[in-house]
Design a protein around this nucleic acid. Structure first.
Length: 221
DNA sequence: ATGGCTCTTTGCTTTAAACG
DNA sequence: CGTTTAAAGCAAAGAGCCAT
């Protein structure tokens, strides 16, 4: 496994110093995360879930319709959606009429309200999660959330501004090149190895998971 | 038996292009 | 002109395997 500086130099060689630096996404501060209202987390979860398996532009173009159909993603209202609401929503042309994904909105509203009750707010929970165990947060999203396993949960965290890595093909390719995994990390053991590698690079560079993830991605095809 | 994995299959909606 | 089809990229479920 290379030192992070070496990987950074590979990224620079491929993209040029300015390009690499400019393209870095910086996570939001913990204070900013903590202040985000619960309904924005539900909105972001929903957007990622509907974009999964779809041309993202479709959902993006329809997004105002989603906000309207789901009442601004108010946690309390979405948590109480019932059969008649689903009947209405699955034929609501303002949104993508995919039954299981529509149900996931209600289930994730319940999930987020549980989190908010446990930690004061969803933002407080996400802001307080330890970065050294990011994979634990992914597991929690998969276990307690609905349709938030796999890449969907990773994109949700990234788009929320939470410090995150995304196991894209390029990132996985770099992890394989470094001998950390031999295939896309799906097993618990592989995920722990990936977390350990990111933790090491974080110590070596002082950079966020988000920056490291982006740099890994541009360091290789 | 049990649980943890991996691999395979299935299904999901919209848009645009191809078709008859 | 209405209808069919391909494509997008993933989650979930099911099947099968191995080591406890």
């Amino acid at each position: 496994m290379r030192n992070f500086d070496e990987i950074y130099q590979l990224a620079v060689a491929r993209k040029g110093e300015a390009g690499v630096l400019e393209s870095l996404l910086h996570p939001k501060s913990q204070a900013e995360i903590a202040e985000m209202p619960d309904d924005r987390f539900l909105a972001l979860m929903t957007k990622c879930i509907f974009q999964s398996g779809f041309n993202w532009k479709v959902v993006e173009a329809m997004w105002p319709g989603f906000e309207a159909a789901f009442k601004g993603f108010d946690i309390g209202r979405c948590a109480m959606l019932h059969d008649e609401d689903f009947g209405r929503l699955v034929s609501d042309v303002r949104i993508v009429r995919h039954g299981p994904k529509i149900r996931a909105v209600q289930e994730n509203a319940v999930f987020l309200s549980d989190i908010a009750r446990e930690h004061g707010s969803a933002g407080a929970f996400f802001a307080g999660w330890p970065t050294e165990n990011y994979v634990g947060l992914l597991d929690l999203l998969q276990k307690r959330g609905s349709r938030l396993g796999g890449n969907t949960g990773q994109y949700f965290l990234r788009f929320s501004g939470i410090d995150s890595f995304i196991l894209s093909q390029s990132v996985v390719n770099r992890l394989m090149a470094e001998g950390i995994v031999t295939k896309a990390p799906t097993s618990a053991k592989d995920k722990a190895a990936v977390q350990a590698a990111f933790n090491t690079w974080r110590e070596q560079s002082g950079r966020s998971l988000t920056e490291i993830s982006r740099i890994l991605a541009v360091s290789i095809d």
